[in-house]
Design a protein around this nucleic acid. Structure first.
Length: 354
DNA sequence: AAACCGGGGTA
DNA sequence: TACCCAGGTTT
């Protein structure tokens, strides 16, 4: 174990100053930019989130710009990043800050955590990075580093584990540079104390890391096993009129992709053929006024779109029709709507010639 | 406490 | 495959 908390913090910060990546949100203490970066980086790798951060800063240079944008624009810009509640909460919080707080972000943990989409981690990150408050962050990196160095085997996704690691992190934080310390331990976890095959032999902490000394690094951190993945069967009805128009619907119920757009969807409990599909009430409801000319299966082999907790086994049915209704939109306008990656991939492939 | 919420990278 | 990622909200 590290001899003292100061030893741990000082060495971590020293390592960080020599090894940190140059990232745009590390060049500012502007709470708008720090907040935006933290929301984008929730459950998201830096490499994946970075282009989105740059897009958002360009489109919305201030919280007021973001607040004044339509939610549909924010969702469209967020398209492809996943966990879309982040985008909806981002926009709601921007409106709150711009309209009810005079455009000024709260400057302490207690007020920050009241914002939509801001939990313990994000409130601590903003308070420490922007305002030098001693609020320890606990993200996936911190769980991993602390569980190994101090050999804590409490499951990190249990309630007691969350509290235990938070308390330990708060004991270790550098009081003089809490923001730098927080970023240092996260960077160390992301770049050095990595989940698989970390280079422990060259690690600055290996004399003090209990997991290394006891050869239990590959057993930590401990995580309670997740539930098995559920399979769902999606049938999208890609209606195409002679006038090159189609139908999109907005998802408004509970569940995935709330407020994003998709083709009319018939979900089934198993893979269906055209004959079976035509008998389903949902299919008949969608097509009753269409008088469709033909229906053909686009993808012979179903496309399996993999989410973290479910696999979407998807068939796209091409339905040609003479009739057009008020809710038809030009195919060329599909790109204006925020759609899931599953839909985006199909559209870019199938409509490449339109 | 458990369930739910995306998409992509890595071994 | 399995696991993970600068987590948070809802039930």
């Amino acid at each position: 174990m590290p001899k003292t908390n100061a030893f741990f913090a000082n060495n971590l910060i020293q390592w960080y100053l020599q090894n940190k990546r140059t990232l745009p949100w590390r060049a500012t203490k502007d709470p708008y930019r720090i907040w935006l970066s933290e929301i984008i980086l929730q459950q998201t790798r830096v490499a994946q989130g970075l282009p989105y951060y740059l897009k958002f800063i360009e489109a919305y240079p201030s919280v007021k710009h973001l607040a004044d944008a339509p939610e549909s624009d924010v969702l469209k810009l967020w398209q492809g990043l996943g966990y879309y509640s982040r985008a909806r909460n981002l926009h709601a919080t921007a409106k709150m800050v711009a309209n009810d707080m005079n455009g000024i972000f709260p400057n302490n943990y207690k007020e920050l955590i009241k914002l939509k989409g801001v939990g313990d981690y994000t409130a601590s990150a903003i308070a420490s990075i922007c305002y030098d408050h001693s609020e320890a962050v606990v993200d996936g990196n911190v769980f991993r580093v602390l569980s190994r160095v101090f050999s804590v085997s409490t499951p990190i996704n249990s309630t007691v584990g969350q509290k235990e690691f938070k308390k330990l992190a708060q004991q270790l934080i550098d009081q003089k540079q809490p923001g730098t310390y927080n970023q240092a331990i996260m960077e160390f976890g992301a770049r050095y104390c990595v989940p698989q095959n970390p280079n422990c032999d060259a690690c600055i902490f290996n004399p003090h890391c209990i997991a290394f000394q006891t050869k239990t690094v590959n057993q930590l951190p401990v995580k309670i096993k997740a539930k098995p993945i559920k399979k769902r069967y999606f049938n999208y009805l890609v209606v195409i009129s002679k006038n090159e128009k189609t139908i999109l619907q907005q998802r408004l119920g509970k569940g995935i992709w709330h407020k994003l757009y998709e083709f009319p969807l018939v979900e089934t409990s198993e893979k269906v053929n055209a004959k079976k599909l035509k008998t389903l009430p949902q299919f008949q409801e969608y097509t009753q006024n269409l008088k469709f000319e033909s229906i053909t299966l686009y993808n012979d082999e179903p496309i399996t779109h993999k989410l973290s907790h479910q696999h979407l086994i998807t068939q796209f049915w091409i339905i040609e029709t003479f009739k057009e209704q008020h809710d038809f939109i030009p195919i060329s306008k599909i790109t204006k709507y925020a759609v899931p990656v599953l839909i985006e991939n199909f559209v870019s492939e199938f409509f490449a010639n339109y």
